[in-house]
Design a protein around this nucleic acid. Sequence first.
DNA 1: TTGAAAGCGCTAACAA
DNA 2: TTGTTAGCGCTTTCAA
Lengths: 353, 353
Amino acid sequence: MRELPVPTLKDVALKSGVHVGTASRALSGDQYHLVSEATRARVRSVAEELGYSTNAVAQSLRKGTTGALGIVVADLDNSFIVAVIRGIEHESRGRDYMSLVAETQDDPRTLRDVVTRLLRNQVDAIILSAARVTDEEFVSELEQRVPVVLAVRGFTQASESEDDSRHVEVLQDDYVGSRAAANHLMALGHTRIAQLPGPPQIYSFAGRSEGYRAALALHPDVIDVSTGAFALESSLAEGRRLAADLLRLQPALRPTAIFAHNDLMAVGALDALRDAGLRCPVDVSVIGYNDAPLIDHIDPPLTTVRLPGFELGRHSARMAFSLIDGVTPTRSRIMLAPELVDRKSTTPPRQLA
Amino acid sequence: MRELPVPTLKDVALKSGVHVGTASRALSGDQYHLVSEATRARVRSVAEELGYSTNAVAQSLRKGTTGALGIVVADLDNSFIVAVIRGIEHESRGRDYMSLVAETQDDPRTLRDVVTRLLRNQVDAIILSAARVTDEEFVSELEQRVPVVLAVRGFTQASESEDDSRHVEVLQDDYVGSRAAANHLMALGHTRIAQLPGPPQIYSFAGRSEGYRAALALHPDVIDVSTGAFALESSLAEGRRLAADLLRLQPALRPTAIFAHNDLMAVGALDALRDAGLRCPVDVSVIGYNDAPLIDHIDPPLTTVRLPGFELGRHSARMAFSLIDGVTPTRSRIMLAPELVDRKSTTPPRQLA
DNA sequence: TTGAAAGCGCTAACAA
DNA sequence: TTGTTAGCGCTTTCAA
């Protein structure tokens, strides 16, 4: 099956009649000018002929740098995260960097595991998009060993100023996004609203709760009928459970609008509504977060908040490269604004309709 | 930010008062028995204390093997593929292998690009899930340089026997899946059926076309009203376009059931139906392929074919390990059976209802 | 059971 | 402009 002996630089040098050092320079991206045009051409053609390709492992060992970026995500099965990864890759292309993508499934042990692996493999930087609030100490230690960019999930409360940020973060603004969601509902005339909070162990969800509450606080006539419970994971089943609890309240106390911390939970809420014989949006409006694929094709098409994943990835990569280059980035935190997408799952409450 | 000098084996050896060779053995997974228990314990505790972790780059260079698996996928934003990746990772865990995941976006140039990168990085094997029919020569060359497992997308026609297979393949049986889909429609009583074929440059879609036609061939009373056109990419928009073309036929010639080569195209077909003032499933039944997330929550919940992604990944990884170990796998081709999931988008045709 | 030494493939001083 | 040389951090053969 596989049998061709892989040619090394030495082979190329030999066949070109030059020393390996010269061959190295001739083939290198930034030292080729130290070689006469003639030899350079010869070496390159020999390399081509032999099918030579540089051994990145040897190169890395010698250079002390691998040209690899570690990307750690909680859940690969998430289009938003995939967009982030694509943004990173896009930005890496120009620098000829390679990404090592690892998934934690939101398990703290797995997180430590994959990070250890990445470290062993000498990645030049890590873009971490899987941190939970309890991981801050771990991340601080990690930052001693390798440049780290926190993407999507940070450790910064919305209320904190950039000055006291201890990490390099590229985030989507949960505070702004959730406020937009809440404001959308209130603008429609809803006065009894509830949120379905995602796991508070993830700052993003904490931020969404905060933004939601801040928005409601500005409207004394609006009351928050959230139960106080939160999802154990941001899944459809949990959204359904939380919503069902809410719907068990007596009708007069029930919310006329629900803000779910992500689309999957919103779909769960839709299921709960149906279970309770209620209809969306006529009886209860529902708004999600993320703008997942096909979420515009469910019944009813979901109003939600769209996140700038690709851009977020690009910024994260740029931040990482700054750190790698030893350039202190001008900003230690970048916040990108999400955007509300108005569809069919939100309308004015019935009494106003 | 980062400053701790990273300890090397030499540091550990020095502090332990042994030679690096001994330290290496003490820390190794399979040579530690060559070291006295006392020194082993000492070396290990020193390593721990220093926070030593082996430099995988140096280790790889010396060993000539990296413990890395290259995984090449066409589209990361695909839950089925993510399941495959997870299956691979699951199987890799025990062997302490690491995956390098790369995406081609189905672009042949990018495919060559990422494979080159993986090769430079000396991956021990490549699991390729992004091949197009025109890539067979490229893959054959690749197989000379590194063990290759074709996952999900192979080069094997459904009709070929395993004996003439030139590659190591782990596939989901498109032929069986598409036959199941067609049979489901025919069992419901449909006699005018059309398929919406995905790009034939991908063998999976070619296989689905074949299976579909084979199933219909067994029922002389059923006529295939497919237009013959196929999708340029397996997207919602293309599904919509193809379906719209079909619906322009005069009513008597129109299909009463449509088999879309994947769920996204099926959703596009649903849109086209709506555009044409037709309803699913009352006027036209629609069946998809893949069982994408949320596809059970669209309107109507889609009947589709579910694929064993995780298992497929596990088998792919096992195959790869066999090749790495130099063990000729007992089988050069594994075909996993998909499963039909009956939901609400398919019913008997109107005249029979 | 341990030490010594060579060398994986490459790059980058330094010298010529 | 090119050759020489040392060495990145590790593993492993060979000797002791």
